[in-house]
Design a protein around this nucleic acid. Structure first.
Length: 488
DNA sequence: TGAAATGTTGGGGCG
DNA sequence: ACGCCCCAACATTTC
C-alpha cells in the first residue's frame, strides 16, 4: 500500500478550500490524482454546462498550481475509476457524498464494486451543511415544515470549522486526460454565451470575493433589500454554492462571524442564514422523497387539470406575456442565466396559476437556463409555488403581477433594464401599460400589441379560472377523488 | 415569502 | 345638535 496514490473524484465541490475529501486524500501522505468524470447520462442544462466549463478550467489551473493537475475523463464512472486505478496503481478512491437519489444509488454500487476490487473507498460529507440523517423530528422522520426544520438546524451541533486550502499537493506523473474543449460544454453559436460571461466570474477565488463583497456591502440591508429586484441586494452566490466554489459551511461561518462583529446586522444575517437553510431543507426533502422531482408531494395534485398551452408557454419563456415584471424576469433569466428570487416566485406563480401550465414544465425551463440550476432547490421551489410541496404556499395564494411589480420594483427600474421597449414609460403605468392613457403611451413610444404585447391573459379572469381548477381537481366534497389510473 | 371580498369603525360634510 | 351618508382606514374572512 505504501506509495500508492489515491484518486480524488470531484463532482460538485470544485474548490480547494474547505474540501474535506481533498484534505483527507492529502493526509494519506501519498500522491493524489484529482479526477473529474463526465458521465454519459449527465443532464445539465445549457447554462449549467457553460458554468461547468469555466469551473473545470479554473479548478484545473488551481490544482496545477499546487502540483497535481486535474484529469478529465468521459465515460461510466466505475469503468473510468477502474481504468485510472489500473494506469496508476491507486489503492484508494475518495469523494464527497452525492445526495441526488439516483446518484446515491449508483454510488452505493460503485463502492461495493471497488471494495470487491480491494480498493479502499472514503466518502466524506458533501455539499450540505448537515447530513440528512442528522436533522430529524422527534419522531425520527424528516421535517416536512420549514420553521421547525430551521430551528432544529440552529439547535444542532454547529457545522465543523472550515478547512484551509492546501498549498501543495503531491501529484503523479501525467496520465491521459480529455481536452476540456472536446467536451463541447459551451455551445458555439448561442448568443447568450457572451451575456453570461459579462455577468459572472466563475471559480473559487471569485466566489470568495463575492461573499466578502456581500457581507461588506449588502448584508446590513439584506432583510428588506433581498426582495427588491431593482436593487443589488442579494448575495448572488447561488451558482457558486451549486458548483461548490464555496461551501455552505464557509458561508455559514462567515455570516455568523459578521453577525458577531456587527450586532446591528443580526436580523438580516439571520434572514440570510434562513435562505441557506431553505437550500438545505430542499435537499433533505429530496433525499427523503426520491420521486420528489417528478411527482407532487401532495398527492391531491396528481389529478390537477393542467393545460397544454404551447403559445402561452412560449410567451412566458420569451418574456412576451404583456406583464412587465414577468417579462423582465424571464428576459433576465435568458440573458444572464439568473433571476432574482422574488421574481422567480412571480414568474412561477404566473405560469402555474395564470396559465395553468404544469409546474414541471416551468421547472424544466429553469433547469435549462439557470446557471445555478440545482435539483434540490429547483424541485422544492417549484412545488412550493404550485402549492403541492412541503410547507407550500397555499394554492390560492396567487400573485398579482401588477401589485407585485409596484411593491417590489416601485420605480420600474428593473422592468426598464430588461424590457427596454418600456424604458420611457411613466412609473405610474409601467407595471400595467394596458391602463395607460393614449398620450402616456405615445410619449413613451409604446404601441401595445406592436412594440410590447398586450397581456396574454386577464389576471382577474385567470385567477378565477385557477381557483375553479383547484376546486374541480379536489372533487366536490373537497377530498381528492380516487384515481388509481393516474399511477399507470 | 397574497389578494380580493367583506366587515367594522370613526371622522367629517351636510341637510 | 342630530342623523345620515360617504368613505378612508383598518381588520377579518375567504379563496
Amino acid at each position: 500500500m505504501k506509495n500508492a496514490p489515491s484518486i480524488l473524484w470531484f463532482y460538485r465541490d470544485l474548490r480547494l478550500g474547505d474540501n474535506a475529501a481533498l484534505t483527507g486524500a492529502i493526509a494519506r501522505g501519498e500522491a493524489v490524482i484529482p479526477l473529474y468524470i463526465r458521465d454519459g447520462n449527465d443532464d445539465e442544462g445549457g447554462a449549467s454546462k457553460w458554468w461547468l466549463h469555466h469551473a473545470l478550467e479554473n479548478l484545473g489551473s488551481d490544482l496545477s498550481a499546487c502540483g497535481a493537475g486535474l484529469i478529465l475523463r468521459h465515460g461510466k464512472p466505475l469503468d473510468i475509476l477502474r481504468r485510472v486505478i489500473a494506469e496508476t496503481g491507486a489503492k484508494a478512491v475518495t469523494w464527497a457524498r452525492r445526495y441526488e437519489p439516483e446518484l446515491a444509488a449508483r454510488d452505493a454500487k460503485i463502492i461495493a464494486a471497488l471494495k470487491e476490487d480491494g480498493i479502499e473507498v472514503v466518502v466524506h460529507p458533501g455539499f450540505l451543511l448537515f447530513e440528512p440523517e442528522q436533522i430529524k423530528t422527534g419522531g425520527s422522520t424528516p421535517f416536512k415544515v420549514f420553521t421547525p426544520f430551521s430551528k432544529a438546524c440552529f439547535a444542532a451541533p454547529a457545522p465543523a470549522h472550515t478547512l484551509a486550502a492546501p498549498k501543495k499537493i503531491k501529484g503523479i506523473e501525467a496520465i491521459a486526460s480529455d481536452d476540456l474543449v472536446d467536451w463541447k460544454l459551451i455551445p458555439k453559436t448561442a448568443w447568450w454565451v457572451k451575456g453570461l460571461g459579462d455577468d459572472w466570474h466563475v471559480g473559487e477565488k471569485a466566489a470568495g470575493r463575492q461573499l466578502q463583497h456581500f457581507i461588506k456591502s449588502n448584508l446590513m440591508g439584506y432583510k428588506t433589500a433581498r426582495d427588491r429586484p431593482d436593487i443589488a441586494g442579494t448575495s448572488r452566490l447561488s451558482p457558486s454554492l451549486h458548483f461548490g466554489h464555496i461551501s455552505p459551511r464557509q458561508v455559514w461561518h462567515a455570516i455568523h462571524h459578521a453577525q458577531d462583529a456587527s450586532p446591528a446586522c443580526a436580523q438580516s444575517a439571520h434572514r440570510y442564514l434562513l435562505e441557506i437553510l431553505w437550500r438545505e431543507f430542499s435537499w433533505h426533502l429530496l433525499c427523503a422523497i426520491p420521486d420528489f422531482t417528478t411527482q407532487p408531494l401532495q398527492k391531491s395534485f396528481m389529478q390537477f387539470p393542467w393545460l397544454n398551452d404551447d403559445a402561452g408557454l412560449a410567451a412566458w419563456q420569451r418574456g412576451q406575456t404583456g406583464y412587465p415584471i414577468v417579462d423582465a424576469g424571464m428576459r433576465e433569466l435568458w440573458q444572464t442565466g439568473w433571476m432574482h428570487n422574488r421574481v422567480r416566485m412571480i414568474v412561477a406563480s404566473f405560469l402555474i396559476k395564470d396559465l395553468l401550465i404544469d409546474w414541471r414544465i416551468g421547472m424544466a425551463w429553469f433547469w435549462d437556463t439557470l446557471v445555478d440550476a440545482d435539483l434540490g432547490s429547483n424541485t422544492a421551489s417549484w412545488q412550493w409555488v404550485a402549492g403541492c410541496g412541503a410547507d407550500a404556499s397555499p394554492y390560492f395564494r396567487i400573485f398579482n403581477p401588477t401589485l407585485q411589480g409596484e411593491k417590489f420594483d416601485p420605480q420600474g427600474d428593473y422592468v426598464r433594464r430588461f424590457v427596454p421597449e418600456l424604458a420611457k414609460m411613466d412609473a405610474k403605468f409601467i407595471h400595467e401599460p394596458w391602463k395607460a392613457p393614449a398620450d402616456v403611451l405615445a410619449k413613451a413610444g409604446v404601441v401595445l400589441g406592436r412594440t410590447y404585447p398586450k397581456p396574454i391573459v386577464d389576471h382577474a379572469t385567470a385567477r378565477a379560472r385557477a381557483l375553479k381548477a383547484l376546486k374541480t381537481s379536489k372533487g366536490e366534497d373537497g377530498q381528492a377523488p380516487e384515481s388509481e389510473d393516474l399511477f399507470e
